[in-house]
Amino acid sequence: MNDFFSTTILIATVASGIRLATPFLLASLGEALGQRSGVLNLGVDGVMLMGAFVAYFVVLKTGNPLIGAAAGILLGMVFGLVYAFITVNLHAEQGVSGIGIYLFGLGMSDLLFQKLVGTPLPIMPFPEIHIPLLADIPIIGPMLFTHSLIVYVAFLLVPAFTLLLNSTTYGMNIRAVGENPAAVDSLGVSVTKVRYSAIIIGNGLAGLAGAALAIELGIFQHNLTNSMGFIAIALVYFGAWRPFGVMAGSLIFGMVAAIVLQGKTLGIIPRSASDLAAMAPAVITIFALVLVANRFKQPAALSKPYERGR
């Protein structure tokens, strides 16, 4: 009986870790793609917040989480278009313009929420999808295959992005533009087009990450993301700009948070130490990066605007 009980808890904890990791993973994948093309975006959190609000609002009005998620992606892509114009065409300092985007998203999402909604009315969350056959596997099934659509999408994007980056011409162009834009330019590939597309896709994912958060929780609130976007940026560095690395970072962060939460629920972690426990995901992420000898270099052209002939 006791054995069964602990298996239940193990399953619940792992499932919870995966859920907690999902918004980080989506946002990090998007940020990694942008950075691979040489553009740093510190505004992820702002885009996530806007995506979260728009998705929440759309679901509130339509009752359909899928349309809400699509609205979140679209909103993110619009932000991506603007950000691409600022950074690629206008060569704006990427660190500071990203913080501008963050502040805008933080204020605007709150403002829109207060004016258009007010009371945090609940919305319809994504239904859980039990994948046939796989969900019936003992232990693994309920851990990995009884999530909502968005979780599967996020994790399927990891191999998809790996393929995209390593095995397609487009992916090679992205990487090359991030390393040596002049060389790519001389080959007749438009640096502008490559960066625009990478930024738009990346921001679309940030919008989706926010949408996923709002729809999974069924709610919107001032500063819903609680700086998740900044952690997502940190996880890009953790994952050394590689989709599977980013996934590992998101999972470590999510799992540690889930274990701490479960430990507090069961009273294993005493209440007096709950603050100390809450810092565990951050500390462990740093240590993990210290231990994994970091042999990876960041894209050489990261945060450097490209100007022909300079």
């Binding site: 239940t8 808890i9 399953i11 619940a12 904890t13 919870s16 859920r19 907690l20 918004p23 958060l213 999974e216 929780l217 709610i219 609130q221 001032h222 500063n223 819903l224 609680n226 998740m228 948070a257 889930a258 939460l261 479960q262 507090k264 629920t265 069961l266 709950s274 603050d275 809450a278």
Partner: peptide
């Protein structure tokens, strides 16, 4: 440990349901 973290509160509720 927070007055504002809605996501963590949701996950805490899930942890309760799990036990």
């Amino acid at each position: 440990g927070s007055f504002s973290d809605v996501a963590l509160a949701a996950e805490a509720a899930r942890a309760h349901l799990a036990v």
